[in-house]
Nucleic acid binder design. Structure first.
Lengths: 204, 204
DNA sequence: ATATAGTTTAACCAAATAGTTAACGCAAAG
DNA sequence: CTTTGCGTTAACTATTTGGTTAAACTATAT
């Protein structure tokens, strides 16, 4: 094949640029021209490699979902004790989001904006990831190793405390007069603060 | 004045329609034609009563902010004990969001998309609302009436657990197979579950 | 009845934007 | 050296979309 390296290079550069623009502006706010400019190429190339805005978006969205979800599954599936699992989850998940600050809002916003599209196009077999965790909590409660609490509430409490600060990031930074670095430091703290807060509440 | 009732009626209908469309689709995704259709009027009327899309958006956004913020201030300013204050806050705030499911994501998304615009156009004197709460917590800790915890973490934990479920609502409903009614029931529970969870963690 | 002034509408306009095309460039194969 | 075919570009097209305008309508005051 001719120009394979250049080809791959362009393909890749488009993806990187598209990711940047889509994550920052969302599907509705993103402009194909912005993506082309960001990639430093002609707009026609976007259509040459990825047929349409929607196709390009799907690529990025799929990649975003792959980052947003599966780490959870890995950790939940691991055999470590519940409390350690909670600690590990918070730490790993916050770490991931620190590397992709815009990811959570991007994903959740797009899911909200096009729930049907998301459901039939991307939601496959992801149902189970919560149930497994819930079952494990239920077992702990039954074994009297922790207080009685509805697993659904515990689960979403944990997720909320990890993700929400990234969604409210600019507002939170304004409210607390944090700069970028301080925010990152704050989230680093939360990697241990959240598990501590949770365990303090549910331990017997 | 001529046609005052009709006038007010139209003005109002535009606002209602605009609110619906903007909250559902966001600034970038909303179409003036959608708003006109929703209001059952001619598109030109939008510009007759509210000069531009941006002006109309500002109206809606300002109204949204007024709903999103000030309840917090009232409660935090009240003289009731901290633990009751936490309970009241969660209950009132969740109640408000149950009446405006799309509000949190709308506000937070727009703030993220246009942080500078928000900062200079809408952010005035709102800095203090967190500091007051933080000071109160610090006092409680010093008085040894609760465990030592960084007020910033406690505050955002509370906010996160209240707001986040609304932001992840469609995803959460898919994960748990909840329907609209079950979700509302779930959030009703959280009005007491969240304070319980928090207080369990911080009480001495 | 007629004039007046605010309200409403259909038609129109200009800019923005996703997508297309035809020609050009260029490296490899023959 | 020429041919081949993918990669690339500038220019173009069609559609969407925010915004405008001039005429028509309507209720009220005189």
């Amino acid at each position: 094949m001719v120009n394979k390296e250049v080809n791959d290079n362009t393909r890749e550069r488009i993806l990187i640029a598209a990711k940047k623009v889509f994550l920052l502006k969302g599907m509705a706010g993103a402009r194909m021209q912005d993506i082309a400019d960001e990639a430093g190429i002609n707009k026609a190339m976007l259509h040459y490699y990825y047929r349409s805005k929607e196709k390009l978006f799907e690529m990025i969205f799929e990649e975003a979902l792959a980052q947003f979800f599966p780490k959870i599954v890995d950790i939940i599936d691991s055999g470590i004790p519940l409390f350690e699992k909670i600690a590990l989850f918070c730490s790993e998940y916050i770490d991931m989001m620190l590397k992709n600050t815009y990811l959570p809002l991007f994903v959740l916003n797009e899911v909200n904006k096009q729930p049907e599209y998301f459901k039939e196009r991307f939601w496959k077999g992801k149902n189970s990831l919560f149930e497994k965790f819930a079952a494990e909590i239920a077992a702990e409660i039954k074994g009297r190793r922790m207080k009685n609490i509805n697993p659904a509430h515990l689960f979403i409490n944990m997720i909320s405390m990890c993700i929400f600060p990234f969604i409210a990031k600019p507002l939170w930074m304004m409210s607390t007069n944090m700069d970028e670095l301080q925010f990152r430091g704050f989230m680093e703290q939360r990697k241990t603060e959240i598990p501590k807060f949770i365990i303090e509440s549910i331990k017997k």
